[in-house]
Design a protein around this nucleic acid. Structure first.
Length: 461
RNA sequence: GGUCCCGUCGUCUAGCGGCCUAGGACAUCUGGUUUUCAGCCAGAGAAUCAGGGGUUCGAAUCCCCUCGGGAUCACCA
């Protein structure tokens, strides 16, 4: 059975859109193969831990439809799914490695390591641990027995080829001479990512590791670890990183990266997912708009592109507009009410405006700037109305005659007025539009006036 | 700098040796619909397939080199 996982770290505000892209692939591949999709929290770096981040990430993922079969919330057969709760497991496995001579203790201080690296750099050598503690293992042992703090390092074999078989990139060869003796267990007793990821993926029976390209350089270390334990490595797939327009990796410095930011401007989760699915992959039939279920249906991991895509917010907005236009009216109403829940907009009024704006907004946050005049009389006007008093009087007189306050009748009446006074239609309606809405750009005028009602319109005039 | 990955319109991509005078989508521009703005419809421009060598009857597609971009080299993940 295929088992995939994502392993986010709770070190940010929310889920990174790049993580969602990777999660989507992991999720789709598991579901496609009737497998299981796992979420494991990698919280071994206590210094970068952000309070509340874990919960926010998990709820976001859940709410946008990427549901885990096993996670810290729903549990599962390989509990716990939070690395900070698995400490003794890692410590035991580190001990096994020491006992079999595949790893060793190291008590070098940060100062000594910094010094060493400086020298290596000066001599233009590769920065690698010099195995000082491996060579003096007797003395090191004594110091540790005496209470000295230590780390555990992987003993990388000499002069070996390590081959990574990647499903989309093919065979990649690394050489152990280029690989450092990686720290596996930190002096605080926590594992590093490298130990934890290998132990957990093995114990949790993960069959496919699908992760960001940034992990490719450390994959040989993980393979050495699998070999050291005598375990079978998983199948690797390294997907390309989302990029900023300048092609550097997508970062919060240059672009919004948190899912919650996109939702806060009224991007729909379905649209974000759909857009992200198209980063490095395309629908076999060239379709651009499709559901998560359809994505799972047609997805194949072999079709993932290795070129790194630039994240384009403009196309995301276009896609979001498509989703808004395709929404049921009642659904769109609920979304708008939810989006503006702190404004307490009257539901019946919002409902009436939906048909007027569904084609006109691309994201939920476009709604209020366009429709505010329905809820509040305009205070500012896009054009100066001071010298239009006579025209305004004509309009009022004409509108007062209308008994059946319907858009079509209002329109007819205004058209007649235009003919009567011989003004340009465009100019006339622009003035009326500004009187009613305050703005030169608005939803259709007659319909808007119908919704506002005769009394309110006359007051504004 | 070492190691590794990548290179088709501005952007996302199709392409898997002949169907390619390189297709689609976003964006841009033009026209139509129109009481603004959208939407919708029609159309245009935009890629010497990074460059150079091969292989082949034939290359965007295979090989080599160069150039360009990126990732990574921590007791972070």
């Amino acid at each position: 059975m295929i088992r995939t996982r994502i392993a986010p770290s709770p070190t940010g505000e929310d889920v990174h859109v790049g993580s969602i892209a990777t999660a989507l692939i992991n999720y789709a591949w598991a579901k496609k193969n009737n497998g299981r999709f796992v979420i494991r929290i990698e919280d071994t770096d206590r210094s970068r831990l952000v309070p509340g981040a874990e919960e926010r990430m998990l709820t976001t993922l859940e709410s946008i439809g990427i549901k885990a079969d096993e996670s810290p919330i729903v549990g599962g057969p390989y509990d716990p799914y939070r690395q900070s709760e698995r400490l003794t497991i890692y410590q035991d496995y580190a001990k096994k490695l020491i006992d079999s001579g595949k790893a060793y203790y190291c008590i070098c201080t940060a100062e000594r390591l910094a010094e060493m690296r400086k020298e290596q750099q000066a001599k233009k050598q590769i920065a690698k641990y010099d195995r000082h503690c491996l060579k003096n293992s007797e003395a090191v042992k004594k110091q540790i027995d005496g209470g000295s703090k230590y780390v555990v390092r992987l003993k990388v074999p000499d002069d070996k080829e390590i081959v990574v078989e990647d499903t989309i990139r093919g065979r990649i060869t690394f050489y152990t001479k280029d690989i450092d003796d990686q720290v596996l267990l930190k002096s605080d007793g926590f594992p590093t990512y490298h130990l934890a990821v290998v132990v957990d993926d093995h114990l949790m029976k993960i069959t496919n590791v699908i992760r960001g390209e940034e992990w490719l350089p450390s994959t040989p270390k993980h393979i050495i670890l699998y070999q050291s334990f005598g375990w079978e490595p998983p199948i690797y797939t390294h997907v390309s990183l989302l990029r900023n327009p300048d092609r550097s990796k997508l970062s919060k410095r240059r672009n919004p990266v948190w899912a919650s930011w996109y939702f806060s401007i009224g991007i729909l989760p379905e649209a974000l997912l759909n857009y992200l699915a198209l980063m490095g992959w395309s629908h076999p039939k060239g379709k651009e708009i499709f559901s998560l279920a359809e994505y799972v249906e047609v997805f194949d991991i072999k079709d993932i592109q290795t070129t790194a895509p630039v994240f384009d917010p403009v196309k995301l907005e276009w896609m979001n507009g498509m989703y808004i236009r395709q929404s049921q009216k009642s659904e769109l109403k609920s979304k708008i009410l939810e989006f503006y829940k702190d404004k307490n907009l009257p539901e019946d009024l919002v409902e009436k405006t939906i048909p007027l704006i569904q084609d006109r907004i691309k994201k939920l946050s476009d709604y209020l700037p366009l429709c505010e005049f329905f809820f509040k009389r305009p205070e500012k006007f896009d054009i100066d109305l001071e010298d239009k008093k006579e025209l305004i009087n004509n309009i009022r007189e004409e509108l007062e005659k209308i008994n059946d306050w319907k858009a079509s009748i209002i329109g007819e009446s205004m058209q007649n007025l235009v003919k009567k006074i011989g003004i340009k239609a465009g100019e006339f309606f622009m003035i009326l539009r500004v009187i009613i809405t305050g703005k030169k750009i608005s939803p259709p005028l007659n319909e808007s006036m119908e919704i506002l009602g005769k009394e309110e319109c006359l007051k504004r005039i």
